[in-house]
Write a protein that binds this DNA or RNA. Structure first.
Lengths: 199, 199
DNA sequence: CGACTTCTTGACTTGGCGTTCAAGAAGTCA
DNA sequence: TGACTTCTTGAACGCCAAGTCAAGAAGTCG
């Protein structure tokens, strides 16, 4: 058994990554299968055979996006002091941390984009998105608990509340940055928020 | 001259308002002309004759949305003390201020949704959205300047920075609330942010 | 009334989309 | 080698969207 037939001619993971970038920059609706065929150099039938229909393909890309993001989030927060790390997380989605914006990497957050485009109509998308937000809050809450215990972050508010606030800030930054933002004002806003957490 | 022909049988402003609600709840792409025809009880030809194509119709709805929002924003902030008003502005998009969510009124912010769906591809949408964000920041900045002068809000940060932070928070709340949010956590997050502004 | 203008109606055109499929190619295994 | 399985290719399908238009209806004005 496990009779293997003709081997796939393209790399599945790499293709998913490239599709992710396309979905990320154009959105779900505005990315047609033809766009994917052109950009990925994989024919329609092969895409359908490998990834299922467009919606499954997209949701798989969102899952991958979050998986990568979550890993980076955890790694970034695994430091002391915490506040500079939080600052980095906030500056990242709007690419405020880079002097020359990398045109190859899209702006914003794919989970946020998905929220705007597919939630709440699509229940599966809603689940993925809601889970991502929960995970973000959990991870940041844990980091804030440590930082409160270490006396770095104020304990005037509960870590959960602080983490939620940071979630809203990141998502707001990701979204607004699409319309282009004043770099200086945005950085000052982030500093204001982070300073508010200082003990 | 100004020969008037057959008068329009529907109310233009009211129809735009109803279209706005539909666009608001479903988004631009997911709202078809047929949906509008059904919901507004106005035939296709009449819609095209009155509002131009779908995109113009939508952008007009966004303009109206912002016009109404801006008026409310100014009215809400025209009080002292300011912090409770800011709190109201933050709780509003996610309908956290109402015990029973009004199913007739959609969640989130139409400007934010437009940002996610049409920006930056559509330059006209980008202009409208960017202008709305600027206006929000200007209005809130002016209010914060007064509140800083009155000693209600801390002057450790510039009003512009505080206003930008509030913009990101509102937009983040609007977006994340689509996926459903923990009421208590969200309110606590808002309080955390608002407390951070206190003098 | 009769000329003129504008609005209404809904069938129609056009185009692009997601999806399917049949025929052939490229492997594996006995 | 030949049976079998899986992948590749691109034409074809069906659908539904946005947008158009011609004929008629409902007003105004001289």
């Amino acid at each position: 058994m496990a009779r293997t037939g003709r081997p796939r001619e393209f790399d599945k993971e790499q293709t998913l990554e490239r599709a992710l970038k396309l979905f990320w920059s154009r959105g779900y609706g505005a990315t047609s299968i033809q766009d994917l065929v052109d950009a990925l150099s994989v024919e329609r039938g092969s895409l359908y055979g490998t990834f299922g229909d467009k919606r499954r393909f997209y949701l798989e890309a969102v899952r991958l996006y979050w998986e990568v993001y979550e890993r980076r989030l955890i790694a970034t927060l695994d430091t002391s002091p915490l506040l500079p790390a939080l600052r980095e997380i906030l500056t990242h989605p709007a690419r405020l941390d880079e002097f020359i914006s990398d045109v190859g990497v899209p702006q914003g957050c794919l989970v946020g984009n998905t929220t705007a485009e597919l939630v709440p109509q699509d229940t599966e998308a809603t689940e993925i998105v809601a889970r991502s937000y929960s995970r973000f809050t959990e991870i940041v809450t844990a980091a804030l608990e440590r930082a409160q215990a270490a006396g770095e972050v104020t304990d005037k508010a509960r870590p959960e509340a602080q983490a939620s606030m940071l979630l809203y800030l990141v998502q707001g930054l990701s979204l607004v940055s699409r319309a282009g933002l004043d770099r200086t004002a945005a950085l000052a806003a982030i500093d204001t928020a982070v300073d508010g957490l200082r003990a």
